Amino acid sequence: MDHAFAVKKLSEFLKLVNTHLNDLDAATGDAGSDWPEWPQDLVLQQVWARQIMNAYEPGLGDVAQDESERYYWHQVRAAAVEALGRALSAEEIAEFLRPTSPAVAADSLHPWVWDSAAPLWAAEARQDAVLAAARTVNRRLQQKLSRHDVGESDLCLQTFAVTDPTAGKPRLRFPGDRDTPTWRARQEGAKYLAAGVFLAIRNVAAHEDHVSWSEQEALEHLATLSVLARWIETCTVETST
């Protein structure tokens, strides 16, 4: 719901209601059952106001006409004020009542990632922080495999492949039973995620003059690199015999 729009329309309606009540109070006696013709603006605004009131609470805007016109408009005003209060506080209440969510602690990311990124992050150079972390992860991967002859993405595709290693092309292997579909799926998933990290995150950070990553987006990129770093550290190296 557009709460700002509701506030605007209800505020406009309440001004008209208050004006009409002042006119009634200025008149002698009570209108009783003799209902005069209402101002056109008041009638038109009431159509909007009734729907908005009922949107916040079904039936709130359906005020029954009483014998006293003055009493009726006081009831309408009370309903509109309640709806206005709900509209004004809706976003704050929604934020307050939102379930508490966990937060990612940047300094708890894998040290290959955060130790590289932290100084640049502190300088608000988020793009450079992500790039530094990606380069460190790549260097660690190269060192673990003793390979410096191929680009990051190709290295990941070869490294996590389920095929047997060949001369000069070792593999990284997750622990577990290699005869199970789960183990194979984990290897395949790591292969494509790792390659994707370098293609879609590292390359963008390295080759774009400026990326418009928000702090949250940059942190998510670091978290993805942290996942990859933990996988690389967890896996064992398998070479050809």
Rank of each mutant, 00 (worst) to 15 (best):
P181G: 04
A185H: 08
W183D: 08
T159G: 14
K191T: 00
S153P: 07
Q142W: 00
D179F: 03
T159E: 14
K191Q: 15
E188C: 00
F160L: 14
Y192F: 11
P175T: 07
T159N: 04
L155C: 10
T180M: 03
E188R: 15
R147T: 12
S146K: 07
R147W: 02
P181D: 12
G189P: 02
L193I: 13
L155P: 13
G189K: 00
K191N: 02
D154P: 01
D164N: 12
R178G: 12
E152D: 14
E188Y: 09
L145Q: 01
P165G: 05
K191G: 09
T163H: 08
A185N: 06
D179E: 10
H148Q: 15
Q158P: 07
V197W: 07
D179T: 11
Q143S: 13
L145P: 01
L145S: 01
R186P: 03
L155D: 13
F174R: 00
Y192A: 00
P181W: 01
S146N: 12
D177G: 00
F174V: 00
H148V: 02
V197E: 07
Q143H: 08
D149Y: 06
A194T: 11
F160G: 09
G176H: 09
G189W: 05
L193C: 09
P170M: 01
P175M: 03
T182D: 11
P181C: 03
P170H: 10
P181M: 07
D154A: 00
A167G: 03
F160T: 08
R171V: 13
H148A: 14
D149K: 00
G176S: 10
T180F: 04
A194L: 10
S146T: 04
T166S: 11
L145F: 02
D149S: 04
A194W: 08
D164K: 08
A190C: 06
G168L: 02
R184M: 11
K169N: 09
A195E: 05
L157I: 01
G151F: 12
L172C: 09
T180H: 13
L172Q: 05
D154F: 00
G196L: 10
L193K: 06
V162L: 04
R173H: 09
V197L: 15
C156H: 13
P165E: 06
K144V: 13
D179N: 04
V150C: 14
P165D: 06
G168Y: 02
E152W: 13
L155V: 14
A161E: 13
T159K: 05
P165K: 02
Q158E: 15
C156W: 13
R178S: 12
T180W: 11
K144S: 11
P181N: 06
V162P: 04
E152H: 11
A167I: 01
D164E: 14
H148L: 08
E188L: 13
V197T: 07
W183N: 06
V150G: 07
L145H: 02
R178V: 03
A167L: 11
A161P: 09
R186H: 03
E188P: 01
